[in-house]
Design a protein around this nucleic acid. Structure first.
Length: 824
RNA sequence: GCCCGGGUGGUGGAACGGUAGACACGGAGGCCUCAAAAGCCUUUGCUCGAAAGGGCGUGCGGGUUCGAGUCCCGCCCCGGGUACCA
């Protein structure tokens, strides 16, 4: 009997081999079919946590599976190493963010190696590495030169106590600063933006061609939020030169306008406010500045006061009626025109507002019979709308737009909910924006030879105060690259989403020295064939990376036909502990290290694959350790089966050449081929939990038949297939078994097993017999069973007869040879 | 609030609109052992019944269908995102 499977000896051996052999490194001239498998690069949180284990297990499994299928798989790893936690740690402990980050990168890297994940380590990158920053800054400059980066005023979370900008995360739910407890306000500061809205339509259209989860595509579509409608002017009563421009997707509801609303941040707000209302409006606006956008858009907020009158009246262009103009916080300045017409009959927010302020509510669409709601936004017949009466909503929209255009009152307009991407951060631990402000030349990019611009180390990390970069005595001082006069450096750094918007391109060509990447080399590997990451990145990261790819393609840094970075996407569910996402910031981490030591990486990997569908999250509970133990037991069982056969299975006979295959031989062979078909299809559809179950069943079947006296070659074929199919899941143990059975050749070059279709067919089928749709009995029938035979068989079953209670079926539903339903 | 998911035995989960509960975990019983661990075997949705056998069962309420965990409508609860966490 071979010794027990001992992961603490075997796993490090193979990890060393994979690293040293370069088996999973790929190069530009690799003749195999290319494949690019990528996990979202991790934020280095120290040792990996279970969310990482899950993510990188799925990634590694894909890399190995594709390798076994003969592909040259690009599998790189890097680190999203800028970000707030390192800066917070610096403020708290005084350790420099770089020291802090580098230590945690090393820890994370080591834990992923111990997981047995394989990478082309030559391509490893860190977003805070100067050699990467250089090109992030280079790309920023290219976007700036292309007009895709600009500066504008924007409201930010401002803590008056800390005198600093806060991340949303740093603002508590009651609107106070997590550090000082001061009430956080919105303050307008000059900020850098990327013009992602230029790509709104293409970002929307191109979703159709992506092999992504529908759920994610839907989220992105909703986020981009295309709405087709019309802009129209509401003239202000008594002010001949003043009109309020509003945007609506429902021009058909025009006759139902009973008031209008302008946003508190509207550019021309004060022109609409009458003097005697000024004071009240000012007070209201002060209040609004304390509210978050989520609060402002919440329907629940209607209970509290959320708007005031301006004193002005506007004219409903449809019927000439004068209606009051309010300023209210549920209207946002940055969407549409920053003002809306109030149609309470067909919009719930307008309805709530009208109710709260005693404004008239007029329906212009007839709700269906029995409609119990308030505003009715569905389809129906137009009413109370003069020349639109009787039309459908869609017909009325067309007619209303034509009428507005014919009378020069408005025009068709498409709006997107998507806003430009605010990329500047008033922080230290990010990539500095490489722009210089010159009093005579304006905003000027740094010279290319100067890149990367690296933040100085001798800054103070204080719990109160502005960006450390801004306060640094020298960093800001420079000269203008154009005129040579003294000038000032930008002190804002970039959103870390900028770093993660192009790292997959650098992975394809990390060796480039005069450019961020060579576009021909990138063209070999891109797009990513399989991208894997958490569902929490469904919108922002994925949208930004798509935008970058399109923009860089337009700029000419990428081939013009490379418009989408990720051909296929898989989003995994999250690991939860005590009901919420397992993360460092929540302090609810369970590291894999203890499991590496006790049961080994293979068992932990198998657990993550077996515990449930990869797309679903799961809760880490008291029972989890027992299931991991169970996975380990299964691996031990496979080990004994594969390596302990001589002693354990004396029934296995020498060969079948000299005799007719026994029924046990044929049964085992059929079981193996059914498993190959099932497991292969499960791998393809990311159903790893059922693939593991099928492999457990196969293991049980081999055990059963192994003691029945099957032929040696059939037994060996079964073991080989089992071990190969397990290899992407548990690479260490299977590599060891393979080596002991077949000598010094990698199992990952041995090819994926192929099912023989002839062994998958059966001559019989189980016929399900139902009475009134309820299962009553089953019988085995030939595949070509006739209707009459099936019916006779069914009626001869005592169970069926008792269920029929002597009555004749009034109808028979037959789906032969699988189902017969006798309906009474 | 809004957008996107999810809810099936004691537990994780399985199930082309057609036998609900595959495969595991846990439990119960047994074999092996001086004993234990490991391993092996049997059993395990709830309920009535000695058994044979029956009834009930996929968050809740309706609907479509010969037939619904699966499709449709309306709720409830849980998770993710909500533009400066990544």
């Amino acid at each position: 009997m071979a010794e027990a499977f001992n992961p603490s000896e075997i796993e490090p051996k193979w990890q060393r081999k994979w690293m040293e052999s370069g088996e999973f490194e790929v190069s530009f001239d690799d003749p195999r079919e290319k494949s690019y498998v990528l996990c979202m690069y991790p934020y280095p949180s120290g040792s990996a946590h279970q969310g990482h284990v899950r993510n990188y297990t799925f990634g590694d499994l894909n890399v190995r599976y594709r390798t076994m299928n003969g592909q040259a798989v690009l599998s790189p790893l890097g680190y999203d190493s800028f970000g707030l936690p390192a800066e917070n740690a610096a403020i708290k402990t005084g350790v420099h963010p770089r020291t802090f980050t580098d230590a945690r990168v090393a820890e994370l890297r080591a834990s992923l190696v111990r997981l047995g994940a394989v990478y082309d380590w030559r391509r490893e990158l860190k977003s805070h590495d100067p050699s990467y920053m250089r090109w992030t800054q280079y790309l920023f400059i290219k976007l700036f030169e292309a007009g895709l980066a600009y500066k504008a005023m924007a409201p930010v979370n401002w803590c008056p106590g800390c005198k600093t900008v806060l991340a949303n995360e740093q603002v508590l739910s009651d609107g106070t600063c997590e550090r000082s407890g001061d009430i956080v306000v919105k303050k307008d500061l000059e900020q850098w933006f990327f013009r992602i809205t230029d790509y709104a339509e293409e970002l929307l259209q191109d979703l159709d061609g992506l092999d992504w989860p529908e759920q994610v595509k839907t989220m992105q579509r909703n986020w981009i939020g295309k709405s087709v409608g019309v802009e129209l002017d509401l003239s202000v009563v008594g002010e001949s030169d003043l009109a309020l421009r509003v945007f609506t997707t429902r021009p058909d509801t025009g006759f139902g306008i009973t008031y209008a609303v302008v946003s508190p941040e509207h550019r021309s707000l004060w022109r609409f406010v009458k003097d005697e209302y000024r004071r009240e409006v000012e007070e209201f606006i002060d209040e609004v500045r304390l509210r978050s956008e989520i609060e402002r858009l919440s329907v629940d907020m209607t209970k509290s006061k959320r708007g005031v009158q301006t004193g002005s009246y506007v004219v409903n262009p449809f019927n000439g009626k004068e209606v009051p103009l309010y300023v209210a916080d549920y209207v946002l300045a940055h969407y549409g025109t920053g003002a809306v017409m109030g149609v309470p009959g067909e919009d719930q927010r307008d309805y709530d507002f009208a109710k709260a302020y005693g404004l008239p509510i007029l329906r212009t669409v007839q709700p269906p019979e029995g409609f119990a709601g308030e505003a009715y936004s569905g389809a129906g017949e137009k009413i109370n709308s003069e020349w639109m009466d009787g039309l459908t909503v869609d017909e009325a929209k067309v007619k209303a737009i034509r009428w507005l255009e014919d009378n020069s009152l408005g025009e068709s307009k498409v709006n997107y909910r998507l806003r430009d991407w605010l990329v500047s951060r008033q922080r230290y631990w990010g990539c500095p924006i490489p722009i210089i402000r010159c009093s005579s030349c304006g905003l000027t990019p740094a010279r290319e030879e100067e890149l990367p611009i690296i933040a100085p180390d001798d800054v103070e990390f204080l719990p109160t105060g502005e960006s450390p970069l801004y306060r640094h005595p020298d960093f800001r001082k420079t000269t203008c690259p154009k005129c040579g006069e003294p000038a000032e450096r930008e002190t804002d750094t970039m959103d870390t989403f900028v770093d993660s918007s192009w790292y997959f391109l650098r992975f394809a060509d990390p060796f480039a020295e005069s450019l961020p990447f060579d576009k021909e080399v990138v063209a070999k590997w891109m797009p990513v064939d399989q991208y894997i990451g958490g569902i929490e990145h469904a919108i922002l990261h994925l949208l930004y990376a798509r935008f970058f790819t399109k923009a860089l393609s337009d700029i000419g840094l990428l081939n013009s036909d490379l418009r989408e970075p990720f051909r296929r996407l898989f989003t995994q569910g999250m690991v939860r502990l005590n009901g919420s996402k397992m993360s460092k910031s929540k302090g609810n981490l369970i590291t894999p290290l203890q499991y590496f030591d006790s049961v080994g990486a293979d068992s932990l990997r198998l657990f993550h694959l077996f515990v449930g569908p990869p797309a679903d999250g799961f809760d880490w509970t008291d029972q989890t350790d027992a299931i991991i133990e169970g996975c380990n037991r299964f691996l031990q069982r496979v080990w004994r089966l594969a390596l302990g056969q001589a002693e354990s299975f004396p029934g296995v006979t020498l060969n079948i050449v000299e005799r007719i295959p026994s029924s046990e031989d044929l049964e085992l062979q059929a079981a193996v081929h059914r498993s190959i078909a099932k497991v292969t299809s499960d791998y393809e559809r990311w159903s790893y939990n059922t693939a593991v179950a099928a492999l457990m069943e196969l293991t049980n079947a081999i055990y059963r038949h192994g003691t029945d006296g099957v032929a040696r070659e059939i037994f060996d074929e079964a073991i080989d297939a089992l071990v190969k199919m397990l290899a992407p899941m548990v690479p260490h143990m299977t590599s060891e078994i393979w080596e002991r059975i077949h000598g010094d050749s990698s199992i990952f070059r041995s090819g994926w097993p192929v099912a023989n279709p002839e062994m998958l067919v059966s001559s019989v089928e189980t016929l399900i017999i139902q009475v009134g749709g309820k299962f009553r009995d089953k019988v085995t029938v030939p595949l070509d069973v006739s209707y009459d035979d099936a019916l006779t068989l069914a009626l001869s079953s005592p169970k069926v007869r008792s269920a029929l209670k002597d009555k004749e079926p009034s109808k028979v539903v037959a789906k032969l040879p699988k189902l017969l339903n006798l309906v009474l």
